[in-house]
Design a binder for these strands. Structure first.
Lengths: 225, 225, 225, 225
DNA sequence: GATGAATGAGTGTTCATTCAT
DNA sequence: TATGAATGAACACTCATTCAT
């Protein structure tokens, strides 16, 4: 069995992403104006029929765009996590960042509303990454965890639920910090530490691509497209 | 000359708002799933044709819903402004609140994306209210303004522009505070005071209707619909 | 029994003709663009509902317009017949004029096509007038006719049929003269006379309102709107 | 570079003309009764949607029908011109024929009224043919023309205008002959000749397809479809 | 695999007609 | 009688999806 992608697979993948890209661009260029599959294939310079060699239905391409937005979100998250070392800090920052973005990421929510897929998707941390974070803390002794997998499941369920509840305004936004604090305690972090970690400032939302100087006085994005 | 609304006018107004309400409810209930005019008139218990006695096109009813969301926003703004007395504080709080909501109000942005009207609407303070705010500060001597109308126009233009630029990520979010500070200085407030006012904490976003106790520990909305 | 039209009847008649006039004007002004009943009542400065106090259906107003066109045609016919004295000439001129107009009157045919009433209406001489023409010729001894009514029926049937056949191009246009010649013979006119009468030149088609001088050199309508 | 129509092009063309034919037949069969696109595709034995692969709007198919009527008219014109040799006669006959048909062609005018396209279309000679006619007369020395193209433009403009003015009854029908006479003089034909040519009898209107014997006595179309 | 012609369910919109006031 | 709000059948048009080439 050969798992390397063949030349053909590569071509397939390229055509597919051409279509996804075209779809994404159209949606944002046209500011959420109605978009037809013809529009997408035109933009991708492909025949109309080709679309259906790659997607079963129109929604599928939107789902793929959502995957891209999720990937972008994960990249940003990685950027934020990169300098962090302490497992508890990692958990705290990640959790709060995810909870906040799940509520506030405009691109994500607008795209969901536009595509009509609202309700089926939540912006969340990659499950494996979450497990790894806990694992690391556990093995380094920082966390007191018996069954990493089980704890991971508990946390993930909790996060999903809280995310939804806040979105529905059945929980206040302050629940984001509180949830983080509870998770840290669940992992065996003493409450005072948990509270302190939770209150530390978060990195800015929807981080710009590469703003080297985000100093107080400089409120113009250095970006120059 | 009789300006009282006749019985017929009243009936018309009632039918119209029935339709707007039906539209709004459907959009939010169905979480942005596609909605037909038939859906709306069914929900409103009216004949399909009736819709077109009140709206020229489907988008028009969405525009009406946007007006309602704007009204709701203005009510919340009024609630925030109610306790304030100092004209400079009023300007500062109002400006920052509007700028922030224009970026972050999820209901608004999602609805815009869903309706395909994105780009045509900005969430902003009522123009007359803005003028009054400046007037009051001017007559009380707190502001140094020569021509109230002209100053109002300058500020409004500035706010519209900044709102758009932040949305397009050509300005950072910190521009919101900076803009406020500049406005205050424009109105003759000394910079140190302007800076201080600008940095005062803002009331929470998308304030819940009537949560009597928003204390730190209570992160569950008391609301129970 | 009082047959005078009451004031009310007069009013009714006036409103009705306002509607017919509005309809006719709209059709010709807008060059056969689609016209709604609302358009008509707007033009007539009446409420929409009022229309249905005077006409059962939309087609009815078009039928009324056709009646007006027919009336106009009859006026023109009368103008042509006025100077004629000889019963045979009257029959000849009238028949040929009617046959020709029935084929060529553009306003009539275009309106029919527009209204969708084509096929139900033929532009023809008033039946009573036709009978009178024959009567007169008969009593003056110019015609040899036994039963005026019966002869009238025969002729009318013939004319209707010929009109339709020419329209369908199953008969040539020359059938118009031939038909006239046959009718004259039927009325007892000797063929040479019939032929001569038939060949006399006809007055111009769709006579302009008031062209005093239709001389050869003057091909511009004196009308100056 | 392959300019041959591909098999697909051929198929497209066939489907398209099926639709045009269906539309034309329906209009004339039903005597200008309202016709829906569904009616057309049903008659063409095609799916409703197919219509819109060939026409952007319903009016477009009517425009195509008008093109067919125009083609038919041009064929008839060619039939009339075929036996003619003298350039001046050709111009005279063509001009008068076109002017007359533009006023009197019932099929054309009724179809225009029905389709609501009235005012946008005039029945006229092909521009290139007109230019050729002038060219031929010029090179044979019969016409005195300096710049063929320019003269062509002048004449075409004149004809368009006169056509419209006669239709609006601002010019009398006699203007048709007069216009022809002026055109001939413009081309350098001496007036007496021009006048004579202009007065020569015209071939019959809306010529039947192939009536070999159009003799006086035969007023029944030999045609038997 | 790539293509685009064919398709018809779905939807926005029009408008003749009804009817309560 | 005059009115115009209410209505739904009808229709133009869109577009996701299928399928033969």
């Amino acid at each position: 069995m050969n798992n390397e992608p063949s030349r053909l697979d590569l071509k397939r993948e390229k055509t597919r992403s051409t279509l996804v890209l075209a779809a994404k661009q159209l949606v944002f260029e046209r500011e959420y104006q109605k978009i037809s599959i013809q529009d997408i294939t035109d933009k991708a310079q492909l025949g109309l029929g080709t679309f259906y060699n790659y997607f079963e239905t129109k929604n599928d391409v939107y789902k793929a765009v959502l995957e891209e937005l999720k990937a972008k979100f994960n990249q940003e998250l990685d950027g934020i996590r990169a300098p962090l070392v302490d497992p508890a800090t990692i958990i705290s920052v990640t959790t709060q960042y995810c909870l906040r973005e799940a509520q506030d990421n405009r691109e994500w929510h607008e795209f969901l509303a536009f595509s009509g897929l609202k309700g089926e998707y939540i912006l969340r941390q990659d499950e494996k990454q979450c497990r790894n974070d806990i694992e690391k803390g556990a093995s380094s002794g920082r966390f007191k965890v018996q069954d990493v997998d089980f704890t991971t499941q508990l946390i993930i369920g909790m996060l999903n639920h809280v995310t939804r509840e806040i979105a529905e305004k059945r929980l206040k936004r302050s629940a984001m910090a509180e949830t983080t604090r509870h998770i840290l305690r669940m992992l065996g972090i003493p409450d005072p530490v948990a509270k302190a970690l939770t209150q530390a400032p978060l990195p800015p939302m929807a981080a710009p691509k590469k703003s080297s100087s985000d100093a107080d006085s400089a409120f113009i994005h250095s970006a120059s497209h």
